[in-house]
């Protein structure tokens, strides 16, 4: 992919870091404020996509990003299953909440497994969307490798 002009590159460089942090914030505070794993993951992926669009990429970096994203996507899925199985192996139902049933307002560490599940979903959605972007946008590499 080719990059864009230096105006776009400067602005993207300024914004992308904040966008990434904002996505992390929304993911982590999913049990307290509107948003959650999915919305946060999308914003995190948007920061990656912004950088990639502004600065362009070469095939090598696309290849490594693709590996990286598919690894984290699987990891996110496994983490979510693991979070679900915590309640299962503790002797309750699948996806049962363990410590506190409700989140206390303004307390980040509350709500039992809900924040953990949000983090796992955020990881999966962010990596998944980034992978979709790579597969659709950077298809030169993906198509060359074949199915």
């Amino acid at each position: 992919m080719r990059g864009m002009t230096s105006i776009v590159q400067t602005v993207a460089g300024l914004v992308a870091g904040m966008l990434f942090l904002y996505g992390c914030y929304i993911t982590l505070h999913g049990h307290l404020t509107p948003g959650g794993g999915f919305a946060g993951g999308v914003i995190v992926a948007a920061s990656f996509i912004l950088m990639s669009l502004a600065f362009g990429s070469v095939e090598d970096s696309e290849r490594s990003s693709y590996r990286f994203s598919s690894f984290f996507e699987s990891l996110g899925g496994l983490l979510f299953l693991g979070v679900g199985l915590v309640g299962y192996f503790a002797g309750y139902a699948f996806l049962n909440n363990l410590w506190a049933m409700v989140g206390r307002p303004l307390h980040l560490v509350s709500g039992g497994i809900i924040p953990l599940a949000n983090i796992a979903i955020g990881l999966k959605v962010g990596a998944g969307l980034w992978a979709i972007f790579l597969a659709l946008g950077a298809s030169q590499y993906v198509m060359k490798e074949g199915p």
């Binding site: 996507e73 899925g77 299953l81």
Partner: peptide
């Protein structure tokens, strides 16, 4: 759960 775990384990 089992096939889902399989689906995510296979790529790793």
């Amino acid at each position: 759960v089992l096939p889902l775990a399989g689906a995510f384990l296979v790529p790793l």
